[in-house]
Design a protein around this nucleic acid. Sequence first.
DNA 1: CGTTGATTTGAGTAAGATCAAGTCGGGTGG
DNA 2: CCACCCGACTTGATCTTACTCAAATCAACG
Lengths: 216, 216
Amino acid sequence: MEGRKLGQLRVEPGQPIVAEGLQDDRLYTVLEGWAIRSKSLPDGRRQILNVLLPGDLLGLQGELMGAAQHGVEAVTRVNLCAFRRDTFLALAQADPSLGLDIAWLSALSERFSDDILLSVGRRTAMERVAMLLVHLHRRAASAGLAENGTIAFPLTQPHIADALGLSTVHINRVLQALRRQGLIRLAEGRLAIGDLRALRRVAAYWEQPAPQRPLL
Amino acid sequence: MEGRKLGQLRVEPGQPIVAEGLQDDRLYTVLEGWAIRSKSLPDGRRQILNVLLPGDLLGLQGELMGAAQHGVEAVTRVNLCAFRRDTFLALAQADPSLGLDIAWLSALSERFSDDILLSVGRRTAMERVAMLLVHLHRRAASAGLAENGTIAFPLTQPHIADALGLSTVHINRVLQALRRQGLIRLAEGRLAIGDLRALRRVAAYWEQPAPQRPLL
DNA sequence: CGTTGATTTGAGTAAGATCAAGTCGGGTGG
DNA sequence: CCACCCGACTTGATCTTACTCAAATCAACG
């Protein structure tokens, strides 16, 4: 799809990429930076649905259906690569496997959603936080963002709270407990995991088979 | 795809359709009955990810990626139509628009997931229950299951609890409150909504634009 | 019948929310 | 350059929502 690039987009921290309820006929790839996809209630309560890291595709979920049902916001400075949705669709007409690629990506992201829903619905606060940190550390590392085991971690405690359905005050206390137990180091925007095995145990998490694409 | 049908499958209430962690190389369509897709923690806590109604497709999410990361279980007696995944893939090779159809379906189901995550993460118990009932009533009605405003409602209170991340005891009290306020009638496996407007207000929900397929 | 699971109700408890206040750092405007 | 402001982070105290435990009723079923 490289040739079909519509343009590149730079968004500053805290700025919206896609506004909730607005139509946007583009698809994006995150080239650099962190972003969040979220949805809010009329009174302001917010749920973060997804954390977007470099390499992630944006615009498949709701945007295939007209107006976005969620907002997307930059956490750090974000660089995006934009495509027009219709050229993308034309492309999919020409190349059948592209549609399947898309379906596979949706399946992958749905699996993440399932895990998050399990966390938010059934895990305790400490389990949720441990889970999120393990998950993000792994994703960031596999996106090539790790430097000797630590990753840049731009999410604030309010972000974590909104991602996990908890209050910021409680997030703060849980993080401190995890630090006290030596399970994580999290300071100055960097995260290191002290004891991955133990942190996984805290998260009531066990390794899932790596996603492999069995198709084709 | 009609010609590619592999066979029909009947599953009794409470029986598994897909076991958690098992490989299954089929795709299914629900012809009749209710089923749930769920995921569990090692200690038994369970989260229902999804309620499947007639017309729903099953097997797109995790199954595209090898072993299922979740279980699927019949709630009522369920009739399924089974396809082999590989013939499906071959078909998608031949007809590009099928891949896009699949992508669109994934997008739709992801939008449902987003709503559920918002509920579980940020709504109160009463809001969650109201939301779920409105949502299921609408889906069941649009699947043609409504009879003068009421639908068969086979989910038990433990089911609702596991879908919303609450305890069964609490679900019971919330349901009674909703009944007392005349917002719902729920008895003997049938659900009627007394005052949809009010129930939506309780759910902190406002109408979303109906999903339309803008593709092609 | 006896068992099993759903539903209901009451009583006590706990996880996490809310309220409040203070610290710190970065950014802005005077 | 400095005063101010804002948001993130932190800590303590209190409160509430929803959980846990327990027990009774009921219907379905073998």
